[in-house]
């Protein structure tokens, strides 16, 4: 049986080029196994052959992840690998980024499996675990032996053509994704079974886990309210009359900007509401029920706030993915800064 061709990726340090001083090293490739690659080859056994080792400096990779990955692919491809193994990078952030990036691009461009290993606190875990199989390792290279042992075991499974259906059960980080499956029993029976186990104090596995979200440090008011420009933002689906930008009613990655210059309040011939997640009748009748323009104009005139920002930003928050919400949020945040807004009131349905 012919052995499986593997290309291994290492950073400048493990690749033997140098330490932090060599972190700018350009992509390069050496035939055969290098450094920890020799130990990896021993773990993999004779069914695998490390045919080449690709190496790049951590800083060089971090400065241009997409470009470097592209160049590494060009170096790797001629070796016709069937599997790429990167790292392990343990808790090294930039190295982890490089390993994750390379594995992701290898899978996409070369259409072969790729595999790496990291410590749970490596930021690259969060960044790549949805796309890349990442074996759990300890925090430092002192544990190289065990890390390579797990990676070799996974490589053997991939070599058999196996798909790692539940990465968490294979010593890897869960991808954090979900998929449709059909279970043996209907939902009613499963729910009562789960409840009976819970009552009896026996172990059970919830089919949906409690989510964890990033935390952003909240900004604080820099000016007094009476001097501040305050903006209005909504996820309730407000659009200009006739919806000229064809804003969708949900599942969107877009926002729309609505000028309120010269308007004391919203009227039915100014705006419409498009959002599939709730009955928009009441806010269509009077959009001030969704975005309180009339009251904000009063407060502006009375001097309670310095000024109302003249652009309202809006999106439809129905069925919106977190990634899209982050994108839209970032865009609106940037626009608010450009507009000189010092505070914003968000309204949500």
């Amino acid at each position: 049986m012919e052995s499986m061709r593997v290309v291994h990726y290492l950073n400048q340090f493990f690749g033997g080029i140098g330490g932090e001083d060599a972190a700018g090293a350009e992509p390069q490739i050496k035939p055969g196994a290098v450094g920890p690659g020799r130990q990896l080859q021993a773990r993999l056994g004779e069914r695998f052959e490390i045919v080449a080792t690709a190496i790049c400096g951590d800083n060089a990779f971090a400065d241009d992840p997409a470009g470097i990955a592209e160049r590494l692919i060009a170096l790797i491809a001629p070796y016709r690998p069937q599997l790429v193994i990167a790292g392990p990078s343990f808790n090294a952030g930039r190295y982890g980024q490089g390993c994750g990036q390379l594995c992701a691009v290898v899978q996409e461009k070369l259409e072969i499996p790729a595999l790496t290993g990291m410590y749970e606190e490596n930021p690259a875990v969060e960044q790549f675990r949805d796309r890349v199989l990442i074996a759990r390792t300890a925090g430092t290279a002192r544990h190289m032996g065990e890390a390579l042992y797990s990676i070799a075991a996974l490589a053997a499974r991939l070599a058999r053509g196996e798909t790692i259906v539940q990465p968490a059960e294979a010593g890897c980080f869960a991808r954090g994704l979900k998929r449709t499956v059909f279970r043996d029993d209907d939902a009613a029976k499963r729910a009562v079974d789960m409840l009976m186990r819970k009552i009896a104090g026996q172990p059970f596995v919830s089919e949906i886990s409690v989510p964890k979200f990033d935390r952003v440090t909240p900004a604080r008011m820099a000016a007094s309210l009476a001097n501040a420009t305050v903006a209005l933002v909504t996820d309730g689906g407000l659009v200009a009359k006739g919806n000229p930008e064809r804003m969708p009613t949900g599942y969107t990655d877009r926002m729309t900007a609505i000028s309120v210059t010269g308007r004391r309040q919203f009227a039915t011939d100014d705006v419409e509401v498009h959002h599939f997640g709730y009955n928009t009748q009441f806010v269509s009748d009077d959009a001030n029920r969704l975005v309180p323009l009339d009251v904000m104009r009063d407060l502006e005139r009375e001097g309670v706030i310095g000024k109302l920002s003249e652009t309202v930003y809006s999106t439809a928050g129905a069925g919106m993915s977190l990634a899209n919400a982050r994108k839209v949020g970032r865009e609106i945040g940037q626009r608010l800064l450009q507009d000189g807004a010092q505070a914003a009131i968000l309204t949500s349905t």
């Binding site: 968490a168 954090g176 449709t180 209907d186 089919e207």
Partner: peptide, 10 residues
């Protein structure tokens, strides 16, 4: 409660 269709986290 009807149906065996479900989702699985991975």
């Amino acid at each position: 409660g009807g149906g065996r269709r479900s989702s699985q986290e991975f």
